[in-house]
């Protein structure tokens, strides 16, 4: 009797195991079926190019003697190349000014739009977001017109006050000219993300804070901002990745700011010039890869210092 029940229990268990095994296999298969197509694209267009870029960067092509293996020679060359170093220093400096500026403006706008509701604020929300719909190239073209001495409005506006207009294409001011373009382009997008996060906060929290005697500023600083910290972190990381790759805007304004923006103004422009201007694909790949390395280090350093890695992902 006992033996029988034991036996049947064992057999049902075995059966269940078998069924589960079938289900498991099916689950593996279906999972890979869904992820597979993206996986192929991912391997072909991300992993393979990265590996190929690394491979290319280990070689050097000379006019005489052909291609030779130089191992990390191109990287040694890059990190002692004044053009690459000044470009890398420029994008790091640029990030340190542009990103905090954009995020402070976006945060201020999002807090205002969250606190004040009227027809005008709804209209402004859309208008502030509008530049995001504009390709960065077209945005740079548009600001190029505005900065232009021959048909821009700056001389008219400053002329009203009897002052001479600043020349944003001069080597002193191009930094600020570019800061303005990227702020105009991206602040509205960041504002929308932060605004969406603010709208997701439970309003009863404000009620409770007010009962405890918190003012508007305290609610904004102590409740709203801490609660949208994940969204802030997300846009910080993405703006850091984007800004270190700076290419479109300086490349476009280069034509107008003749002489101010050199072909190696940012690392990406330098890589482009080396690869497509000078057909120096090996060194261009090394610069791209070195820039990718800088981005990785900066992002990880940032995430490490904020110690929010877990909550981000």
């Amino acid at each position: 009797m006992t033996l029988l029940t034991e036996e049947s229990a064992a057999s049902t268990q075995e059966k269940a195991h078998k069924v589960r095994g079938k289900v498991r296999l099916r689950e593996h298969l279906m999972g890979w079926l869904f992820v597979g197509p993206f996986g192929i694209v991912f391997l072909a267009l991300l992993i393979a190019p990265l590996a190929y870029a690394f491979y290319l960067s280990l070689w050097q092509k000379k006019l005489i003697g052909g291609t030779s293996f130089v191992f990390l020679g191109n990287y040694v060359k890059a990190f002692t190349d004044p053009t690459f170093l000044s470009g890398a220093w420029f994008v790091i400096r640029f990030s340190l000014v542009a990103i905090p500026l954009q995020i402070v403006i976006a945060l201020a706008m999002a807090l205002i739009l969250d606190a004040v509701t009227s027809l005008f604020t709804r209209f402004s929300r859309l208008m502030i977001f509008l530049p995001y719909a504009i390709p960065t190239v077209i945005g740079a073209v548009m600001w190029g017109f505005l900065y232009s001495k021959s048909f821009g409005p700056l001389s008219d506006i400053f002329g009203l006050f009897g002052a001479t207009a600043p020349d944003f294409f001069s080597s002193n001011l191009i930094f600020y000219g570019l800061i303005n373009v990227v702020t105009w382009q991206w602040a509205g997008y960041y504002m929308i993300i932060l605004y969406a996060a603010l709208q997701g906060i439970d309003p009863t929290l404000y009620e409770a804070a007010r009962m405890d005697g918190a003012g508007k500023w305290q609610i904004a600083l102590r409740i709203k901002i801490p609660l949208i910290a994940p969204a802030l972190l997300l846009i910080l990381v993405f703006s850091l990745i984007g800004t270190l790759q700076f290419f479109n805007e300086p490349q476009i304004l280069r034509y107008l700011a003749a002489g101010t923006i050199a072909p190696g103004f940012t690392p990406n422009m330098y890589a482009y010039q080396q690869a497509f201007g000078l057909a120096n694909f090996n060194y261009g790949s090394a610069i791209s890869f070195a820039l990718g390395g800088i981005v990785f280090v900066c992002v990880y350093a940032f995430l490490f210092f904020t110690r929010k890695r877990r909550s981000f992902f």
Partner: peptide, 24 residues
């Protein structure tokens, strides 16, 4: 494993891929 590779790929600058993709 593949998901953590995907998360790492979020940090890869898209423009770093342009030159090798062009070569391929």
């Amino acid at each position: 494993f593949s998901f953590s590779i995907l998360l790492g790929a979020l940090m890869v600058p898209a423009t770093a891929l342009v030159i090798p993709t062009f070569m391929m």
